[in-house]
Amino acid sequence: MSELVLDIKDLSLSFLTSGTPVSILKSVELQIAAGEIVGLVGESGSGKSVTALAISKLLPTQITTFSSGSIYFNGMDILTSSEESVAQLRGKKIGFVFQEPMTALNPTMTIGKQLFHVIRRHSDLSKEQAQAKVRAALEEVLIAKPEIVENQYPFQLSGGMRQRVVIAMAMSANPALLIADEPTTALDVTVQAEILNLIGKLAKVHGTAVLLISHDLGVIANTCSKVTVLYAGEVVETGKVSDVLRTPLHPYTQALVKSLPDIAARGSSLETIAGEFPDLRKRPEGCIYAPRCPKKFDKCSESPVLMKVDNEHSVACWAQGSRSSS
């Protein structure tokens, strides 16, 4: 097994919202090796974007409290490192791609100039070398006419082209980790397919570890090798995509897969999840999913830990744990 680029262990954090601490993440575990694409899936409020921001220490410090855990990036503990040393990593060792490419681009600067500045900042290349690298970076993200795009402004490009440029910027310093937070949610499906292919290809060529955050199980299934399912800030299931999505073990993952209309027979009604998303100001004792779970029993009043079902498939559910141990 290759070396871990990212290793998140037992990460718990809370936000202070109008005076009361709200528990956002609880005991999150996540590992990504070089060249691996790991999906992080969950619904709104599940804490998937918070996890991404925590990795690069981008959470607002005044309201964030880390109550436990550590985040190792290439062996360096991010949480105990100084702000300057983490700032060094951002953009250079950790690249970002967000949902809305326009927010990552400067609307008053041409694409070529922006890329040029990014490349110069993260390398010691001369002006001429950096200029050449701009062209190469655009070619690498499969932009057909880089010499034209270079001189264009972001508003002149389509959403898909903008996202390609953002990916080129993120990859230009050859980062060890690429964090892609819903990178295709704002794009059309045909463009989405191209962008996902591109991310997969770049990860393979450069050996980049990729954290792909998405709410779309289909996107995860087509792009990632492993997936971690978050519910209300807790990892409920993690493992190989084929295992987790084909034979989900956690009742939440099962319900999520069955609630997709894609496979449901027409005429049958879709499976839904009973009840409401929990109030994180008072995180319920025991299993976070128990209040909505059809399979809950006495044991669920205790918090389950992630239990290995087989080598790579883990699930935080007593019903599964007792089955595998018995």
């Binding site: 397919a193 199980l217 289909g218 997709l260």
Partner: peptide
């Protein structure tokens, strides 16, 4: 083209 672009989790699994 539209249909083949849709990232369906089950298309992937069928092909495996």
């Amino acid at each position: 083209k539209l249909l083949s672009s849709v990232p369906s989790m089950f298309k992937e699994m069928e092909s495996q």
